[in-house]
Design a protein around this nucleic acid. Sequence first.
DNA 1: CTAGGGTTAG
Length: 702
Amino acid sequence: MRRSISLIPQRVSPIIRFSFPQRCVPFTTIQKLILPEDNYESTTSQHYAASSPCFLLLSKCTNIDSLRKAHGLLTGNGLMDDLSCATKLVSLYGSIGYTKDARLVFDQIPKPDFYSCKVMLGCYVLNKESLEVINFYGFEWKHGYNDIVFSKALKACTELQDLENGEKIHCQIFKVASPDNIVLTGLLDMYAKCGDVKSAHRVFEELTLRNVVSWTSMIAGYVKNDLQREGLCLFNRMREESVSGNEVTYGVLVTACTKLGALHQGKWFHGCLIKSGIELSSCLVTSLLDMYVKCGDINNARRVFSEHSHVDLVMWTAMIVGLTHNGRANEALSLFQRMKGVGIKANCVTIASVLPGCGLVGNLELGRSIHGLSIKVGLWDTNVANALVHMYAKCCQNRDARYVFEMESEKDLVAWNSIISGFSQNGSVHEALFLFHLMNSESSVTPNGVTVASLFSACASLGSLAIGSSLHAYSLKLGFLASSSVHVGTALLDFYAKCGDAESARAVFDTIEEKNTITWSAMIGGYGKQGDTKGSVELFEEMLKREQKPTESTFTSILSACSHTGMVDEGKKYFSSMYKDYNFTPSTKHYTCMIDMLARAGELEQALDVIEKMPIQPDVRCFAAFLHGCGMHSRFDLGEVVIKKMLDLHPDDASYYVLVCNLYASDGRWSQAKEVRNLMKQRGLSKIAGHSMMESEFSAIG
DNA sequence: CTAGGGTTAG
């Protein structure tokens, strides 16, 4: 059928016929809007007479200008009383993002029907205005419900994390309808995302028909709420019921492995994916990449990264974050530079991910330039600001940290924690404590476990038993330890251990339910610090028995414990076990322990042998340990051999000269010590004397 | 109706 302007007078258009000429609307305007003859059919609504000229006019409007023009035209001619026109207008405004205009039109409809209400709701849904969806649903909905309306309303609750309204909708669903599978899956998803896994599971169990989507949704719900093991169990059940997973399912499972640190299991899922021939979407590739890199399997991460043809921003970011988490911040930073070189533009997430790396390696220059960049291109949100605060603090730029912090209009919990933890770590312990005081007195933000964990480590470096133990009492009162969080517990344990109170440390250790390697290592180190090598060794053996995997730093703790009490044989055993059984490459720290251990025990030839044969460059601590041993055992002959070598290697570093001075002084050779001091002066070197601190006043533990 | 990367803690 030919539909053109010539048909209009013959169709149902008394209004047009009478009103347009009367109001002197230039006919050409409408002509221009309506004229194209193509695609008329495709823009018709099933609900309204396609022939309505108003509708015809509107169906040609594709941008805000033409729509506003048409809107004015219709209003001016009193055509807005027509329900179909008004509804179409609502839908069009909504489709191009003008929900406020849509609502204005909707509110002028004298008697909106079910369809027009649905269209209005659809506008909010389309533009992800979840709050409006809920408001509209709650207050204006008078026209009955159907599954689609329920689904949309539930989705809005999910996005808003609005469990309360979600529960109300749940009640309504069963009052008025027998919902279909899609509504029920939406309901399950709402509960899961709002953190109510129990209700989600109840809905899931009551489902008569479980498909991939409902299984996946339930598994994802578990994983989102940190119940990875339950998620994996459910996957087994799913397989028993012969439902096979799709790419979404595997994505969720891989994420579960990442959270568990279960590299082996994750690899197995990767294998399943390859075998099943499921195509790897970017989401899935990112999950795999994230899993490998966060589990420390950098090689496989790199393989996934380089084998994927379109590496997008999210993948780059995942890789940067993973490297940083694995103590490879420098590689992360160079990856960030490479990403810019490839022409991929960072967003807020990337910025917030790179900054911790800058703080970790103390790359203030890059940190500052990122700060500048994010201001210049407007990449700014709370997370970026918080990351900047922490970066500046880590780089000892307290003023800058404080500046960015003060500039934040709404300081959230993370903002306070960022500055407090940053100051705690850079040695500005009193500033950290002062900010904690401000946080309590001048903000509405309540501290959490992260806050006190930071402060515990601050107290540890201050050696302040008094402040630390009152903070312990405070934490008990506020319940930060009741949930037996590993983080807080380990920080507290470490605090007592570093203050030399191994007994209290052990008491805390025993209350931590889910101990991890860091917990064990801290306790092993705690015994060592107190000279209780037996305690260290026993705990280390127990750790192995419980199948807790030691890390490099666990070996540092145990080796240093052995060195304190001269347990040379045990030390040698653990050192060789470290690289033979656990495949760890010994670091300078490990070598230092060995040198210290041998030197204290008087095995100075062996110690010298270690220095000469170690595959990495010995640092100042290695030499210090050796020279200390030389002093202890009056082997100045060996000492002088090393001194010469050492000063040749590091002629400009004052700390090495100090070692030499100390050695001469320990033998009472003051004149030679003075000579070295003079040599330092000549070369323009100076060193601030180091000091250690320990509070002598002890108070009861709260 | 289900799926990817982020800031603070040991």
